[in-house]
């Protein structure tokens, strides 16, 4: 494994830990999109079906997959629990979390139907999860634009996730050169995803670093 991939995976892991730590320590879910978190659970559950088939790739691979599935479900449960422990915060979240995810789900189904490695249930679900991951952050970004303010938790979380995506691109270049391997599907969806993050960071840079607060244009 090359350094870009290890750093990318660690950054992905870090983003999840930041999210869990903040929800638990502050007992607030303000600024976090429930829809994005449900989509990530769906992404991991549909992608890592090979775990259930006992297709062993490596110890690292198995541990990480189990962690991603378990932590994403845990986050959804934490957010649901706040319905009782912090009803005001929960209600506010529901009000601003209004992105229509049915389009993302339908679009990912369509993309999986047209672009896949083979027409088998596992390969189709794998492709679906790749396309869905590329857009799963949109409800979260949409929520930020609507509320017009970004809590530092959410920006740390999005930064760590964006870093993970960005690092996967040099990882693919590395793999192309050292292993002569190339996965058009994963790379195309990955580039789309990175572009979505870049767009967010560009706006964030313009609005926040240049000191105007985060009121994103809609």
């Amino acid at each position: 494994m090359n350094p870009f991939r290890i750093l990318g995976d660690l950054s992905h892991l870090g983003s999840i830990l930041i999210l869990i730590y903040t929800i638990r320590s502050t007992n607030t879910i303000e600024g976090i999109s429930f829809k994005t978190q449900v989509l990530y659970s769906l992404v991991f559950l549909t992608r890592y079906l090979d775990l259930a088939m006992f297709k062993f790739i490596s110890f690292y691979n198995t541990i990480m997959k189990v962690f991603f599935i378990a932590s994403s479900i845990y986050i959804v449960i934490l957010l649901q629990k706040s319905k009782k422990t912090n009803p005001i915060s929960y209600k506010e979240m529901l009000l601003t979390d209004s992105f229509k995810i049915q389009y993302l789900l339908l679009g990912s189904c369509g993309m999986a139907f047209f672009f896949h490695h083979s027409f088998t249930p596992i390969a189709l679900l794998w492709s679906f999860s790749i396309w869905l991951e590329s857009v799963a952050i949109l409800p979260q970004l949409f929520m930020l634009t609507k509320s017009g303010k970004a809590k530092s938790i959410t920006t740390h979380y999005i930064f760590a996730l964006g870093l993970y995506r960005a690092l996967y691109i040099p990882n693919w270049i590395w793999r192309y050169m050292s292993e002569s391997r190339f996965d058009k599907l994963a790379i195309s969806a990955g580039i789309i995803q990175t572009l979505i993050y870049s767009d967010f960071f560009y706006i964030y840079y313009k609005k926040v670093i240049k000191g105007k607060g985060l009121a994103l244009p809609t």
């Binding site: 995976d9 990480m64 991603f68 391997r181 190339f182 058009k184 994963a186």
Partner: peptide
Amino acid sequence: VSKLPFKDEL
């Protein structure tokens, strides 16, 4: 160039 899917990635 091998075009096998990147199933080893996360």
